[in-house]
């Protein structure tokens, strides 16, 4: 009696998280490849331009899948958050928000990297140095101008009231005109930006190092393009065969080694 009560309680307890499920263990496939393989995905957080060889990229639901989320013309700007490598191919996880909200996977070799602060560091990192000089100009500034990288021509404004008191820079760079730039990795809402330390309010610094324009394959004239012809069959025939084989073998084993109970 006690054993039956214990078993009943055990079953009820374990049923609680599984409602309204009924029986058997079913390893549920998750439509989100990223959620299933998060531990193998490496953070990236960089922007790319679509640059497929046919003039567009096909965004997939998961790497190597035939299921397509959407097609994007070459030149579309995309934000990539993670990479995943399988079979020596690297795939990039993209997300776009707003009206064209979508997420999916694209092969890395169909993308062209958008020049950013990391690219600038890769090119000029040998000239970086530890900044030990004054922040006086920054603290006295009425406005602060943050640049994507020195000489980019791209900037945003910052609030000196929150930043100037505690600001320190990770590294500094002196450009060919003698301006000293400081890199801010993270400070009160500002992330990965450059500040001209002796002229922090100047938003007219010339773009002496503008973003290089990547060479992209032109998008097709007809949009949307026709789907790829003759797609490979999507049924996993090997898996179906294995399961069918297991069923047949099991049935044969049971029929051979077990005798049906005689009815009373």
């Amino acid at each position: 009696m006690t054993k039956r009560i214990f078993i009943l309680l055990a079953v009820c307890f374990l049923l609680l998280p599984a409602l309204p499920a009924l029986a058997d263990l079913l390893f549920e496939p998750d439509n989100s490849f990223f959620a299933r393989n998060q531990q193998d995905c490496i953070p990236l957080n960089r922007s790319f331009y679509a640059n497929g060889s046919n003039g567009y990229v096909s965004v997939k639901t998961e790497p190597d899948s035939k299921a397509e989320v959407t097609k994007l013309k070459n030149g579309s700007l995309l934000r990539a958050y993670y990479t995943y490598t399988q079979n020596r191919d690297t795939w990039v996880y993209l997300e776009n928000y707003g009206d064209d909200r979508m997420s999916g996977w694209v092969p890395m070799d169909q993308l062209a990297l958008k020049y950013d602060y990391i690219s600038f560091e890769e090119e000029h990192g040998g000239d970086f140095y530890q900044y030990m000089d004054s922040y006086r100009a920054v603290r006295r500034a009425e406005t602060l101008v943050f640049w994507t990288w020195p000489g980019s021509g791209e900037f945003t404004y910052g609030d000196p009231a929150t930043l100037s008191m505690w600001l320190t820079v990770d590294k500094a760079y002196r450009d060919t005109d003698g301006r000293v730039w400081g890199f801010i990795r993270h400070s009160y809402g500002v992330r990965n930006v450059w500040l001209c330390l002796f002229d922090p309010s100047n938003d007219s610094i010339p773009a002496f190092n503008p973003e290089p324009v990547p060479e992209l394959v032109p998008p097709p004239e007809i949009w949307p393009p026709a789907d790829d012809p003759d797609p490979e069959p999507s049924l996993p025939w090997l898996a179906i065969g294995l399961v069918a084989g297991a069923v047949v073998c099991t049935v044969v084993l049971i029929r051979v080694f077990w005798k049906p109970k005689r009815s009373a």
Binding site: L15, A18, A21, F27
Partner: peptide
Amino acid sequence: FSLAANAFSYGAGVLIQR
């Protein structure tokens, strides 16, 4: 028994996954 066993394994499996 089949119902109880399947319920048990399903519930335990969900717990393990969580």
